[in-house]
Amino acid sequence: MPDTADILRLESLQVHFPIQRGLFDRVLGRPAGAVRAVDGIDLNIGRGEIVALVGESGSGKTTVGRVITKLAQPTGGRLLFEGRNMTAERGSSALRPYRHRVQMIFQDAYQALNPRHTVFDIVAEPLRSLRLVDNVTQLAERVSKALAAAGLNPAGDFFSRFPHELSGGQRQRVVIAGALAVKPELIIADEPVSMLDVSIRAQILQVLVDLRDKHNMALLFITHDLPLAWLIADRIAVLYLGKLVEIGSADEITFNPRHPYTVALRNATPQIGGNAGRAVLPALQGEVPSAARVPKGCRFHPRCPLTFDRCKKEEPPPIEVGPQHLSACWLAK
């Protein structure tokens, strides 16, 4: 059972990107707008816990991951790692201890690998730049171990290969090996299998779950696939237009969703078991509104099949609907 002391905590995290105003707007003195990519998120991840972050494209999942890995700077809220405020920390040397413990797996493995570096260089890069090894023998040893842990055996065969000489699944494993090489305590995985074939997906998932089981590593698993989130995660957080609309245990969210958006997500997921137990609500119409124009009141109300007056005026707070299960909907009670 995972140890539940929180390793990471996000407190009302907010990322707004300024919109470039046109000349016209400036002349007319229109206020500069903002893309509210992440709009106040509270989330905690326990040690050795797997949390899935689920949402449509454009809902802000990647931005959350980029804030945690310090690739984007939040415009509000706090990022706490083991209780320490990391929000303002900057610069590659100041961040070194943090980088040592928090790593990321990218969505598109091919893009994430420098085409001119060999697999060895790629996996060795974090060890070199974080100064985790003293000599070449140690380096080679840790690179081999990381490759083996990511399921690339025999590791030596891959040392001198270039990314284009690997299959899609192997490339994703190289990215994973690079993240593992530093033995992090938290990994942010941004849609790590969405670019992969079904037949390879499960292999990568297995590697990730094994890491948690063997090294008590925590994982933030970003995906838009609800069944996949259910399969791998302990808890699922559902994101809509930059805000968490529901959060709870994987089983609760999958079998007992309390937010109309989560229900819609579940209904939209194609399933081989047929339509049993679905279509409780009509399918969602329209598209996610732009994050530059977040609707007033409940941000889901223009698409919600259950919307009523109050939804248009007041934004619902997260409401406790079960043990550890919150839903931001006026009807959740």
Binding site: R66, S92, Q103, M104, F106, Q111, L113, E125, P126, S129
Partner: peptide
Amino acid sequence: RTFIDRARVVGSSNSS
């Protein structure tokens, strides 16, 4: 490109 993001996440400095 994503590989530059990755290089940052694994702790590489700007010059490297």
